[in-house]
Computed example of a mutant assay.
Amino acid sequence: MLRRPNAPASRTIRGAVIAAALAILLTACTTTPNPSSSPDPTDSATGTPPQEPPVYDPAGTAEANLPIFTSITQQVWGSGERASGRAYIDALAAAGFDRSFMQVTPDQTTVGNAAESLQFSVRWGDAHCLVGQVGPSTGEPVTAVMAQLAEGRCLVGATRPIDW
């Protein structure tokens, strides 16, 4: 005579097997970071490596330093100091640009209104200038490498002393 297995015991075993299988399946589906692996250095959206931030190179050309000049201009423009010529000069000096080679236009018009446009510059060598322009009339910041003027200046018109 064959004995029939105890029904409650077989259900308990089946439940335990199913629970174990689910636990294994769920564990296999979750990922845990491997602390010894380094993060993926590529930009997930484009698959390209992220670009290093630009750096000031005192021995480089004006063209080589335009990216850092532009980056600083955009950072100040994005701050609460966007209408302050001094903020651009101070940020450029903090990055390594020589303050004695800089020019900046006034923040206000002759009648005391906020300037529609600010210009600032850094003389580079004997032939070039890094020039920036920002303000409501400009829209987004504009930066460029320009030829120096005859007197070694970079900006046309009145500039204010950089005496701070």
Rank of each mutant, 00 (worst) to 15 (best):
A95G: 10
P33K: 10
L22N: 04
S36T: 15
T70A: 08
R4M: 12
A83Y: 04
G80H: 05
A91K: 06
D40M: 07
E52P: 09
G152D: 05
A62Y: 03
R11C: 03
C129Q: 05
G135M: 00
A158G: 11
G80V: 11
P106H: 10
A144Q: 12
Q103K: 02
V145C: 02
Q74N: 14
P54A: 08
R14Y: 11
T110I: 00
A16S: 09
A9F: 06
M102Q: 09
S137V: 02
R4F: 12
Y56M: 02
I18E: 11
C154G: 05
A115Q: 10
S100M: 00
I72T: 12
V76H: 00
T61D: 06
R86Q: 11
Q108E: 10
A7S: 11
V55P: 07
D107L: 00
G96H: 15
P50Q: 11
Y88G: 15
C129N: 08
D40C: 14
A147M: 03
G80D: 13
P50G: 06
L130W: 01
A16V: 15
N34S: 08
D98G: 02
V131H: 02
L22D: 08
T48E: 11
F69M: 07
G47D: 10
A91H: 06
T159A: 00
A83F: 01
G96M: 02
G80I: 03
D57H: 07
A150V: 07
G125S: 02
G47A: 09
P41Q: 10
L149P: 08
W164V: 14
L26M: 07
A144E: 09
A19S: 08
Q108W: 00
V134H: 01
P39I: 14
W164R: 07
I162Y: 00
M1E: 13
N34T: 14
S44Y: 13
I162S: 01
I89C: 10
E81Y: 09
M102H: 05
P35D: 06
E140S: 11
T46S: 07
W164Y: 14
G60T: 07
N113F: 09
S44K: 07
A87N: 04
P35N: 08
F69Q: 03
A45H: 01
E140T: 12
A114L: 02
P106Y: 14
T73D: 11
G85F: 01
R3F: 13
T46P: 06
Q108N: 05
G80N: 09
G15N: 12
P49R: 09
V55L: 01
I13F: 08
R4H: 08
P50C: 09
